[in-house]
Design a protein around this nucleic acid. Structure first.
Length: 244
DNA sequence: CATAGCATCCGGCAAGCGCT
DNA sequence: AGCGCTTGCCGGATGCTATG
């Protein structure tokens, strides 16, 4: 453990930094699930090593233990630097990532919801042959085809032969925002489609609304029905889901 | 090319916690 | 108390890298 004799980051460790760039925050358990094969203990050790070397930071104190909350990891300047060699991240995103050290608990919770959603949806819609591809706001920052504000996620499976995509927009209603914001999120999709901003031949993606609990799901179902009744068309499909 | 030294991998074990 | 789950700590195995 002598810093003078430190090895270069291996590809496993870089993969973790890339995941963090895409999802902003992560936990040992969620990273383990999202990689599928690797053991939790091992992921933890990678995170420990990256933390020790100050590539990533760790949000954790005794109150977390008491609440049974896992530590939340995020990129530090050194980790962001290490990603620059990938040449795939635009400078705006890199600046955004630098602010994660001071992110609010609410923001962290939302980021973890999105990561959990990607894990859950991979199990729901992916198969051995056609894995579900999940994209985050980091992946499509600046995209002008998608509704604004950008959805929490965009996911798709691709038919190997026809190359046709079955695709989804993902919104996480996880208790981090007031009702008004959630309703606006629903109308955002309907308006974007009705105002002809969806300028490709592909069908508009099914909008998956991940609701924190049964009670919220019932409420959201009602909002969706009402909003579609009031709209000009019902071409946008919504589906409410509960977290696993 | 051989090898020494050490960073990393990874499993075993323990401790803390909630649930029953 | 027993079970399951998570994180922390320890140490042997593995494999990379610097050096001659």
């Amino acid at each position: 453990m002598h810093s003078s004799n430190r090895k270069q980051l291996n590809h496993h460790q870089l993969d973790i930094l890339r995941l963090l760039a895409r999802f902003r925050f992560g936990t040992t358990a969620l990273f383990t699930q999202s990689t599928g094969t690797t053991s939790r203990r091992y992921i933890h050790e990678r995170l420990r090593i990256l933390t020790e070397q100050e590539y990533i930071g760790k949000r954790y104190d005794s109150s977390y233990k008491l609440l049974g909350k896992p530590a939340a990891y995020h990129l530090l300047p050194k980790g962001i630097d290490a990603l620059k060699t990938d040449n795939v991240y635009d400078t705006k995103l890199l600046k955004l990532l630098a602010k994660d050290s001071n992110a609010s608990d609410r923001f962290i919770r939302h980021c973890l919801s999105v990561l959990a959603a990607s894990v859950q949806l991979s199990g729901l819609y992916g198969t051995e042959h056609t894995q579900l591809q999940f994209r985050t706001r980091s992946d499509y920052a600046g995209n002008e085809l998608f509704p604004q504000a950008l959805p929490d996620g965009y996911a798709f499976t691709e038919n190997a032969k026809t190359k046709e995509r079955t695709h989804y927009f993902v919104e996480c209603f996880d208790g981090t925002m007031p009702d008004s914001v959630m309703r606006k999120t629903i109308t955002k999709h309907v308006d974007w489609y009705d105002n002809d901003n969806w300028t490709t031949e592909a069908l508009y993606p099914t909008v998956l609304l991940l609701c924190r609990d049964e009670r919220l799901k019932a409420k959201v179902d009602k909002w969706v029905t009402k909003i579609l009744d009031d709209a000009w068309s019902d071409d946008v499909q919504f589906k409410t889901l509960l977290p696993k």
